[in-house]
Computed example of a mutant assay.
Amino acid sequence: MSALERVPLLGVPRVATPISHHLGEGPVWDPIRGRVLWVDITAGVVYAARFSYGGAIEIEERVAFPDVAAAVAVSATGEWLVAGAHRLCVRHRDGSITTGPDLIDGADRRFNDGKPDPAGRFLVGTKGPGPELLLRLGADGRATVLDGDLGLSNGLAWTSDGRTLYSIDTTSRRIHARSYDPVSGTTGERRVFLEVDAGFPDGMTTDTEDHLWVALWGQGCVVRISPDGEIVGRVDVPAPHTSCPVFAGPDLDTLVITTATEGMTREDIAAHPLSGRLFTVRTGHRGIAPHLWAGTRPPTTSLEETA
């Protein structure tokens, strides 16, 4: 028995959506409108849905964007900020879409996972041949480079007080941590919080006890990690490519997990026919209040190195 198999199970997930996604990712809870949002990255689609009986998710909107839809964030007034391939888009409340200028370039590079910080600034990483970036976009539209040496920038999460930022570099299997000023955004020195030895860490979220919940791509599970870096629980999912979890619902007590079929053969999908679906599970834990995006328009192209 592997070390991961010895970790206690934290509930049995149920299938929540009738459709499968190629690269389902980035679930977000919108507490104001009571909806779950997520993306199918390569399809360039953002979904918005409500919970129904028993943890099922009923899709209300399916909105296509110009190229990819790598991540979505929502503002207090209902605008969506969506990371495309090289630029960011805003979907306004009337349904119109404003596209910003290119922030990155490269035919083999695109934006990847992104989230607002406690003050509503948007952090977003890149995926490509490397080295890859983690950027922060301020309310003034300026972009600051937090990291410029990543293999694949992925999941982001903060502690409940906003004073520690966790970020994932998937290819190195590392979860990084650094101090973070939730008001100014000033960061401390980056350190390795945990190196994962089973699967590849992808998306993540935080619970009220400041434990991380990390999706392990290729491992078919989400693990709960203590502030000391110990894996203390897991949720097994009948889909090997688990991509990202988030706590959702009015009480933030339902864990929503996205999965993908990307990179799977026909034989793989036949063996795991629920791949690409969303799953929900009650784990006995609750998430922290989601951060909302503070902007209303796409950021500019101005980049500056962090001090």
Rank of each mutant, 00 (worst) to 15 (best):
Y47A: 10
A48M: 00
A48G: 02
A49W: 01
R50V: 15
R50L: 02
F51N: 07
S52N: 12
G54W: 04
G54P: 02
G55P: 03
I57F: 00
E58A: 14
E58Q: 03
I59S: 10
E60A: 07
E61I: 07
E61T: 14
V63Q: 09
D67W: 02
V74W: 02
V74G: 10
V74Q: 03
S75N: 07
S75Q: 04
A76T: 09
A76I: 11
A76N: 11
G78N: 12
W80L: 13
L81D: 02
V82F: 05
V82R: 02
V82M: 06
G84C: 06
L88W: 03
C89R: 01
V90E: 03
R93F: 01
D94T: 14
D94E: 04
G95Y: 06
G95L: 06
S96V: 02
I97H: 07
T98L: 09
T98Q: 15
T98I: 09
T99L: 08
T99Q: 13
D102M: 04
D102G: 05
D105S: 14
D105N: 07
D105T: 12
G106L: 10
G106Q: 04
A107E: 15
R109M: 12
R110S: 11
R110P: 05
R110K: 12
N112I: 04
D113Q: 11
A119L: 07
F122L: 12
G128W: 13
P131E: 07
P131C: 06
E132C: 12
E132N: 13
L134F: 02
L137E: 00
D140S: 06
D140N: 04
R142A: 15
A143D: 01
A143V: 13
T144Y: 15
T144S: 04
L146I: 13
L146R: 01
D147L: 11
G148I: 14
G148E: 08
L150F: 10
L150G: 01
L150E: 06
G151W: 03
S153W: 09
S153T: 05
L156Q: 05
L156N: 06
A157L: 06
D161P: 08
G162A: 02
G162T: 05
L165E: 13
Y166A: 03
I168H: 02
I168P: 10
D169S: 04
R173I: 01
R173Q: 15
R174C: 11
